[in-house]
Computed example of a mutant assay.
Amino acid sequence: MTQDNSITAIESLVKELLPENEDIFLVSVKIKPTNNIKIFLDADSGLSIEKCIKINRALYKVIEEKGWYPDGDFSLEVSSPGLDEPLKLLRQYKKNIGRNVEVTLNDDKKQEGKLLAVNEETVTLEQHEGKGKKAITKITGIPFADIRQTKIQIVF
Rank of each mutant, 00 (worst) to 15 (best):
S75N: 14
D42A: 08
N100M: 08
F74C: 06
S48L: 05
S79I: 01
D73R: 08
E85C: 00
G72K: 12
K66G: 13
G82N: 08
E64W: 00
K38E: 14
P70V: 07
I55W: 03
K66S: 14
I63Y: 03
F40G: 01
E65L: 12
V62T: 15
I97S: 01
G46P: 04
V78C: 10
Y93F: 15
E77I: 06
A58G: 00
E64C: 06
E77W: 02
C52R: 09
S79A: 13
A43P: 02
K66W: 07
L89A: 01
P70K: 10
I63V: 13
S45M: 07
I49H: 13
G82P: 11
V78Q: 09
K88N: 04
G98A: 08
A58P: 00
D71Y: 03
E64M: 10
G98D: 07
E65K: 15
N100L: 05
Y69E: 08
N56C: 10
E65D: 15
S79Y: 03
N56G: 09
K61A: 12
L47H: 07
D44W: 02
S80I: 02
S80T: 08
L89P: 04
F40P: 06
P81R: 08
S80D: 07
S75I: 06
K88R: 12
F74H: 01
K95Y: 08
N100V: 01
I63G: 09
F74W: 00
